[in-house]
Simulated scan of single mutants.
Amino acid sequence: MAKKLIFAYVLMLVIGIIALSPALTLAKGPFNLKAVTFLPKNNSFCDAFFMFKKELEKRAKGDLLINYAGGPEAIPSFEQIEAVTNGMVDLVLLPAAYYVPQLPVANAIKLSTLMPWEERKRGAYDFLNRLHQKKLNVYYLGRFSPGIKFHLYLNRKIDRPRLTGMKIRVTPIYKGVVQALGGIPVTIAPGEVYTALERGVVDGYGWPSVKISDFGWHEVTKYIIDPGFYQVDVGILVNLNTWNKLSPELRQIMIDTAKQVEHRAADHYARLIKEEREFITSKGVKVINFCPEDEKEYLRVAYKAGWDEVLKKSPELGAQYKGLLGQ
């Protein structure tokens, strides 16, 4: 009798350990995902994240929740990739530019001329997702800033795509473009750009097609060059261990939600871009349009500079991704 009782106790103990072990079971919910964003909550680049959060929780019907822990005030932006890789947080909204040192080919995500759903059809998304899982221990849900391009904003009018002798405030994203056009790259923190423009320390800057008005930069900007180039590469990453703990049903809900929000985000940002352009031009910012030949050359130089950088640091993977994009 004693042996039977001991055996029953041990059996119950083993079953209990298995049931409580996250490594051996799939979570069925309710499941809370701790999340951070690279910018503060009210920044427009976070809009798609909160669209995703709202729609995901609606579809999951209480089985999956996103616990928003904050922006860079919670975890500094450039430390968030390590936080999600190591499981300090479960999910982040983060530009690929912020983790290029860890995954050099991610520098090519900005070079896509396609929308996210087109990248999925061509296999480009699956290619990136596999690399994110292998190299970063994260599941790449996709890009949530579709259609937002970068522009050069100037205080000196140019008629040809040349920036010879002009000092342009840059980030690593488009530093190569400025150099290829003959400009002089200058690194200045966003909070110092207004004064630098006002005092003539720089002749211009690069920035996406939305929200220079948030900084008031339109007040000290005379021109914007059309067309834009590249795309903002803000994506959602999920810690791979967390992802693997979710039930197949919850994973599919996340994937389906991401696909839907990609389209909604494209419409949302298209509206913001239109509103921003109307606002800054009403305040006196003029648009520079090149002739067709020069416009073609401008874009050729911009994309060549981008791909040269990618292929130099990640030749094999960069070439594969470029092929998937049809470039």
Rank of each mutant, 00 (worst) to 15 (best):
K4L: 05
L13D: 00
L24A: 02
T25K: 15
L26E: 13
F31E: 04
N32K: 12
F38P: 00
P40A: 05
F52W: 12
K53I: 00
A69E: 02
E73K: 04
I75F: 09
P76D: 02
D90Y: 13
L93N: 08
A97D: 13
Y99V: 00
Q102M: 11
L103H: 07
I109G: 01
T113F: 11
L114R: 11
M115K: 15
M115G: 03
A124F: 09
N129T: 01
Q133W: 09
N137H: 13
V138Y: 14
V138K: 08
G142E: 07
S145N: 00
I148Q: 11
H151K: 02
Y153E: 04
P161I: 14
M166E: 01
M166C: 01
K167S: 05
K167L: 01
K167A: 06
P172W: 08
I173C: 03
G182Y: 08
T187H: 11
P190V: 06
V210P: 08
E219K: 15
E219H: 14
I225C: 07
G228N: 04
Q231Y: 08
T242I: 11
S247W: 13
Q252G: 03
I255S: 00
T257A: 01
A258D: 08
E278T: 09
T281Q: 10
N289G: 03
D294Y: 12
E297P: 03
E297N: 12
Y298V: 07
L299S: 10
V301L: 14
Y303W: 11
W307T: 01
W307A: 02
S314R: 13
Q320N: 06
Q320M: 11
K322R: 12
L324E: 15
Q327S: 04
